[in-house]
Design a protein around this nucleic acid. Structure first.
Lengths: 113, 113
DNA sequence: GCATATGTGTTGGCTGCCAATACATACACT
DNA sequence: AGTGTATGTATTGGCAGCCAACACATATGC
């Protein structure tokens, strides 16, 4: 996977992995990697600024937690975040349909062969 | 469709619309727009530099044509370009699979409910 | 002691698409 | 003759946004 691959789709990825429940930054990286089959490897320089931005605009909320002696910042979806996630999924479908139909023009249904 | 949407996938789009036969720049814009259902509207500032680059690296070849008194620069795929197009399609599939599986995690087949 | 894993965070830079701009020819209409 | 619109090629500057590199801290194993 070429670098810069997630450009323009990062917000959707972050919101999506937080849908099942709150996660902290490090776990978010792991979750994206797992759910993508190991293909998507986000860096901290990618997600931390993004998480801050998403919280600032009200799509996420965060809280500090202590696991043993370790501090973690846990992010979770707000209601607004859930709505935005739905919109991101729609946008993704439109995007893939548009690019896909240029890249692989479908044979019009009903044509022979 | 948000601006900057095709970032990272432009080369594939250009190669794909040239697959059926040679086209000139203006027609390429129209072809992408048509095949995407009107969604993708590329600008000249987007495609001309890209076409030049693709020719420079040997994926396209170009020739001036005269339609009536008008001059047009027609681009066509090279053999290398066709091979690259196949690669772009594979990369596109991997990309959409990766992002898609994060955005919409599939219930693993065979699991009860 | 040193490496490795876990954990949060910042900064600079680069890639690459786009908006704006410029210019030319052809044709229709007034 | 002038104006508008469609067709056609091309360049330049800007900037959004992701990433590499870096910095720092705690815990555990060898």
């Amino acid at each position: 996977m070429k670098t810069d691959a997630v450009r323009g789709h990062l917000d959707g990825l972050l919101l999506a992995v937080l849908e099942p429940g709150p996660l902290h930054g490090y776990a978010i990286i792991a979750a994206v990697q797992n759910r993508s089959g190991g293909v998507l490897e986000l860096r901290t320089g990618t997600i931390y600024p993004a998480l801050n931005r998403l919280e600032r605009v009200g799509l996420l909320s965060s809280s500090w937690e202590s696991a043993g002696e370790r501090r973690r910042r846990c992010y979770e979806l707000t209601e607004e975040g859930r709505r935005t996630l739905a919109g991101e999924r729609t946008a993704w479908d439109e995007f893939t349909t548009a690019i896909g139909s240029v890249l692989n023009p479908s044979t019009p249904p009903g044509l022979p062969t």
